[in-house]
Design a protein around this nucleic acid. Structure first.
Lengths: 214, 214
DNA sequence: CGAAACGTTGATCGTCATCAATGACGGTGG
DNA sequence: CCACCGTCATTGATGACGATCAACGTTTCG
């Protein structure tokens, strides 16, 4: 979902103000602008300073699958540097974004020299891998309605505003299908008739989710 | 799919023979035995020396989802040490397995002191994250038949023998559904009438996969 | 004792019904 | 023009039930 990493963010503030700061640029992106493009080689690693991006992969049939939304303190491009590979997904701003940019080779050398950076990246990778596994599992195993519900809970908690297109992309469905499923949830009185607010208490929600377990 | 990591394996051989070797035990597991159990706390990090394990998560409804098969040189339990969290998935031997065991705290301290180990783990996490993303995407977006085909190609290439139950678990379906889909592929002359061998040339296969792109 | 007969078990598949999810087309309303 | 939704048809995927068959061990009878 929306990942953030305050520790990483704080460390970058510190780095940018240090003697190394000269190597770190700050760049601005308008919504829709891309920080990285799937399949291309990267030149910089970016750490989000402000704003939200989406991280998605486009399949050969043109359908997009959004892995996560990245907010403050999230790093991107690190996978590619570590693996010395082309860009896995596209990173696109969905709000105005400002990001620190570290040249590829510099990041690569810091990564194994700067103990703090090393640990931050290691923990970040571990967290993402765990989250990705958890989601891949339940999205495979439970029906769409279940996945949508869980997602709406998160949106609610984080007070996040996302376009329908992006929500649909996260669930790997079309906007049409998304609308349909929302309507079904409204008919079941799970969602408010307007907007995407949940209409349930904590317990009701848990009971509802558990009902998918047969 | 079946991951292996020869570099990690080689490094473990070396470590086990060094002055640190005393801390590293070797354990044996029969097929069906578990190295780690989902939800439990871990006490050791394991590196597979020989044999194959499956790494899977069980959802509340009792269905299993297999993430990957781990072979020689693959590490497990590292995520939990890095994140200081309970076990994400169960790791179960599917052939006789022998594994190096490193006590949790020891691994934890080596991880940020031993540069080689650090790099091996970092690269391993990066690779797994990338692979997991790639798979999550296409398994979400394409129909079952597509996923099965891609999986059979890999089995073929790696000369791997897996039980039907495990193949089904990887695809997140029941054995019944697996059998059904196999039958459909046989009727389309894509698979041999016996076994799971592909019956196509490289080009035919590519053409077939591309046909899913509309 | 040994061979035929029997019963149990698990794997597979035909069939049917059902649910989940999508695609297409057209209408409505801002 | 675009976002949204009603409707209908269709595809994708599953679950339930029952028949079949092979494997295996045990019993029974000559």
């Amino acid at each position: 979902m929306l990942f953030t990493n305050p520790d990483f963010s704080a460390y970058m503030e510190q780095l940018a103000g240090s003697s190394q700061g000269g190597h770190i640029a700050t760049r601005q992106y308008a919504p829709g602008a891309m920080l990285l493009r799937q399949g291309e080689n990267i030149h910089h690693v970016y750490i989000i300073r402000e704003g939200i991006t989406k991280c998605y992969m486009r399949e050969e049939n043109g359908k997009d699958f959004i892995f996560e939304f990245l907010g403050q303190g999230e790093v991107t491009g690190e996978l590619e540097v570590i693996r010395k590979a082309a860009c896995l997904c596209t990173i696109e701003a969905i709000t105005p974004v400002s990001a620190w940019a570290i040249p590829r080779d510099l990041f690569s050398s810091w990564l194994y020299k700067d103990a703090t950076l090393n640990r931050l990246v290691m923990e970040e990778l571990a967290t993402r891998l765990a989250q990705t596994c958890i989601r891949a599992s339940y999205q495979q195993i439970y029906p769409l309605e279940y996945g949508l519900l869980r997602f709406l809970v998160l949106i609610d908690q984080q007070q996040l505003h996302l376009s329908k297109k992006d929500i649909a992309g996260y669930l790997a469905i079309s906007v049409r299908s998304f609308n349909r499923t929302v309507k079904q949830l409204r008919e079941k009185k799970v969602l408010a008739t307007e907007g995407l607010q949940l209409h349930l208490s904590e317990q009701q929600l848990e009971a509802l989710l558990r009902r998918f377990d047969d």
